[in-house]
Amino acid sequence: MRIDCPMCGSRDRREYYYQGGAVMLARPAPDAGEAAWDDYLHLRENPAGETEELWQHDGGCGAWLVVTRDTVSHEISNVALAEDVKRAMRKAS
């Protein structure tokens, strides 16, 4: 498996750290309530198909990435910098 880091180019999976679903970008407000936090930390869509995930190029530039990947074929269709995605989320909301 290889991932195209927007900073460094195509690199072996060994250089990357996987964290989980990209929902972790949307941290709830401290007072958002039990259900919102349960959603954020525990519950997962966990699709058998395309999904957005958070990876970090920790063996490289250190960038956190939002990787769009299919969990059945493992095909990667998009890689974006998490900070760009987060900024766009901010703008949209």
Binding site: Q19, L25, R27, Q56, D58, A63, W64, L81, A82, K86
Partner: peptide, 14 residues
């Protein structure tokens, strides 16, 4: 270190 990277890139890039 990874945690700080996460906080500053994924939660608070500003």
């Amino acid at each position: 270190m990874r945690h700080l990277e996460f906080v500053t890139q994924a939660l608070h890039p500003e």
